[in-house]
Design a protein around this nucleic acid. Structure first.
Ligand SMILES: [Mn+2]
Ligand SMILES: [Mn+2]
Ligand SMILES: [Zn+2]
Ligand SMILES: [Zn+2]
Lengths: 141, 141
DNA sequence: AATTAAAATAAGAATCATTCTTGACTGTGG
DNA sequence: CCACAGTCAAGAATGATTCTTATTTTAATT
C-alpha cells in the first residue's frame, strides 16, 4: 500500500473520522460503496466492488471494515434468514422488504407518527432497544 | 430402532399424520419438545432434550425433522441475527421479543385489528407473503 | 528526518451451524 | 416372502464468518 505524502486522491472531501472511527482508505471505500449504491450488499458484494479501487484489499479486511463501521453506528447489519449478512447505511428507523420477483431489497418506513407500542401487545415495562422488521413478497405492476 | 407391533407407548393420542406429513416417532418427539416447552429452542437444544426419549437419535435427524415440520407448515423458524435458528410451534401471526436480561424469547402479538398496511409505507401493489419481526430489549420489573 | 507505539491490514487457517451424501432400516401392500 | 417408498444415522462437505499472526501504516515524538 504505497502512500502519498502530499495529497492523495483519497483525501477528497471525505471526513478523516466519523463517530470517533478513523476513516482509513479501506473504510472510506467500503462506506462509499454502501452509500452510492444502497442495494444492501453482502460483504462479498462489497469486496468485489471495492477491489476496483483497492486491488489488494482482502475479504477479511472488508469484514473488518464493516464490523468497525457497524460498531460505531455508521452502518447497520440487515439479516434475511440465515443468508449472508447485508449492510445498510440508512440509520433512520426502517424495515426491509425483499421483492422475491426481482431479488431487490427496499427500505420500508413506518407511516408518520406510528409507534410500535401503539401496535404491539408488549408486556408492561418493556423497553425495546432494537427492532428488526423483515418482509418478503412481490410488487404487482 | 426397535418397534412394537402391538401397542407402542408412542402411539398415544398423537395423530399419525399432520398436514400430510407422516409423524414418525422422531418427528413426534421433536414436535412434542417444541409444544411442551415453547422456549424457541435451537436444533441442538431439541437434540439434547429428545435424546432422553430416543437415545440413538442424531443431530442430523433432528435437523431433518425440524426441516420436514417447517416445510409442512407445522412449525416455524425464528431468526436472531446469525445465531442458530430457533423453532416455534405458534402458527399465529406474531413477532419475537428477546429479553437481553434473561435471555428468554417471548412471543409478541399485534394489538387486535392492526394491519401492516395501516402502519407501513409500502409501495402500491405490494403483496406481503411473510413477515418477521424481532425485538430486543429488557423488561423493567 | 528518524524513532516508536498503537492501530489497521492481508493472508490464510480455524470454526461451527447447517446441508449433503450414502447406505441401512422400516412398514405397507402385493 | 418380496419390492417399494419413505426415513433415518453417521459422517463428510459446505460456506459465511472469525481468528491468528506477521506486516504495514499511521500519528505522535524526538
Ligand atoms: Mn465494480
Ligand atoms: Mn432433558
Ligand atoms: Zn436499509
Ligand atoms: Zn414464537
Amino acid at each position: 500500500m504505497v502512500s502519498d505524502h502530499t495529497h492523495s486522491p483519497d483525501n477528497d472531501d471525505f471526513p478523516q473520522e466519523i463517530n470517533g472511527l478513523r476513516m482509513t482508505r479501506q473504510r472510506k471505500e467500503v462506506y462509499r460503496c454502501l452509500m452510492e449504491h444502497r442495494v444492501h450488499p453482502t460483504a462479498q458484494d462489497v469486496f468485489l466492488e471495492v477491489k476496483d479501487k483497492l486491488p489488494q484489499i482482502s475479504l477479511a479486511t472488508v469484514y473488518n471494515c464493516l464490523e468497525a463501521l457497524t460498531q460505531h453506528g455508521i452502518i447497520r447489519q440487515v439479516h434475511f434468514d440465515r443468508e449472508s449478512c447485508r449492510y445498510c447505511p440508512n440509520l433512520l428507523d426502517h424495515g426491509h422488504f425483499h421483492d422475491q420477483a426481482t431479488g431487490k431489497i427496499h427500505d420500508v418506513t413506518f407511516k408518520p407518527g406510528v409507534k410500535l407500542e401503539d401496535v404491539l401487545d408488549l408486556p408492561p415495562g418493556t423497553v425495546v432497544s432494537n427492532i428488526e422488521l423483515t418482509l418478503r413478497g412481490t410488487i404487482a405492476s
